[in-house]
Amino acid sequence: MLSRKGIFSQKYSLYWMMAPLFIYLAAFYLYPLIYSVYIGFYEWSLGDATKTFVGFRNYVSAFQDSQFTGSFLNTAIFVIAAVGIELTLGLSLALLLNRESWPMRILRTVILLPTLITPLVVALTWKALLNPDIGALTYYIRAVGIDIGRGIFVERGLAMAGIVLIDVWQWTSLITIILLAGLKGMPIEPYEAAYVDGASRWQAFRYITLPLLRPTILIALVVRTLDAMKIFDSVFAITGGGPGTATTTMNFHIFKVGIQHLKVGAASAMSNIFLLFSVLIGLFIIRSVFLSARRKGGAV
């Protein structure tokens, strides 16, 4: 073999170990992406023979489309609420389950159940549970005396909360699992030292656990944020973006324009804006990971 000297040597390993991935991404990821940027400059409906070059008109129209700009805000509210609650709940659950005993081990798998169900089926299940008149959950919510008006997905002020609830249900355990792993990887020494010095549990958590867990939390945050921004299934299956425009999210609006109305040019322009926005937010969060990692000297 030529492996020591030739093209397969360590020197070139950088290239051939990574080449398959990058060739793959170039073919199947970059191509569609570039196509989307290209088609964003055209007025084109799926099935039309001709494309008309319109420059930035699709982009201008996107910003004039009040449903699109509104969906921007709706998505932001959704992401902040859903990811915020998921992180808080996920962290609590991770801390509670961070013990080695057989019930805990079983629980750690059982809580994964929500992630094992197709999101669209999850949405339909919750639609049935929260059916404003005959849903099982609605029944219990009313039975304990909580006022949900005509129903969660009927009231303009509650519908988005319902969508958030579903997302929290499905993805909290994913965060828990990620954070549990982070907790498992933590060194024991700082705690021993701290307890010797008479620190309380709360102090140990505040000054040791949280800082050490921070990079893991931020990574869970990036992944969930990027996924949550794409929220689609529950809106599609339950509210159709309503009541009014209360739950119209970006991905849902783009789906409607592109796949249902077939206006691919306009939809591509919108999704390019959306993608840029997602990337900026992702970069922002990743920058925080870098900064915190550097400050802590690259500690886990």
Partner: peptide
């Protein structure tokens, strides 16, 4: 290197609707 890792992670940000149609044609 960090830029590369970041860009790979950001693939997750790609809205599925965007690549669906060109991918199908491909």
């Amino acid at each position: 290197k960090s830029l590369l890792i970041t860009s790979i992670l950001l693939i997750r940000a790609l809205p599925p609707v965007v690549i669906l149609i060109p991918f199908r044609v491909l």
